[in-house]
Amino acid sequence: MQKNERYMTDNFPKMSFVGLDGILVQFSQEICENGNSAALAFRQEIEKKNHPYIIESSNSLTAAYFRIDIKIAAADSILNFFDDVLKEKNWYTSQLPSNRKLFTIPCVFGTDLAPQFEKVIKLAKLSRAQAISEFTRTKTRVMTIGFSPGQPYAGLLSEKWDVPRLAEVSKNVPKSALVCAIRQLIIFSNSTPTGWHHIGQTAFECFNSNRQQPILLNPGDEITFLEINPSELAQIKSNNSDGLGGVKISEIRT
């Protein structure tokens, strides 16, 4: 609660423009779980109100984004509407979305498949076992889906994982890679150049158009990992047309 008050006095929630046709409602400057829940709940509430000027919306880690149809109305004209909704309640104490799921994803840590693991655990001052237990014994929450189809940004890892992104971008980190930086982890939907540290390799495809549900993860879901070795990963990959990569999905009871 103390933290909430601090954010409120720092002029959060705060509304800003994104380009000409977007409005961003930010709930905190730093990544934090109550800022994330606030952003998810606020977007859900605005979507419910079905405003005719809003073309689409999305969530980032601690903000809600709305794209306005500027052929009908200038983005400025929506600010008062948002301001009124913001005043309706304390968004920082919002509940997480319902029907949340836990994803347990098999993952190889380090080895040639994930070459930046050793360097990152040195930065984080952790042993291999300590580092892996952070991923296999704790659960991280999907804070948002973005960048590319179905791709989760999950957090928060413990403070030791507050490592900056690399200044030099790695050329091509493969699809389904587990990467981390600034207390967050991502599983890549597609191979991509990145400044994030490649620490693990899974066979879980965040987006697979062969599946009835191409995108499985939603904000609020939780992710944990099962450590496997490279030959076990190869075996999973040999029978992976649905791109599930051996994931186990269970309901989270609240």
Partner: peptide, 29 residues
């Protein structure tokens, strides 16, 4: 913090080199 990206954004990469983002740009960065 990673946040929303929209087409038209001029993004500075790690080395401070600008990229103009177009229709296929990612949704966050």
């Amino acid at each position: 913090l990673s946040d929303v990206i929209v087409p038209g954004d001029i993004q500075m990469t790690g080395s401070g080199q600008p990229f103009v983002l177009l229709a296929d740009c990612q949704t966050m960065g």
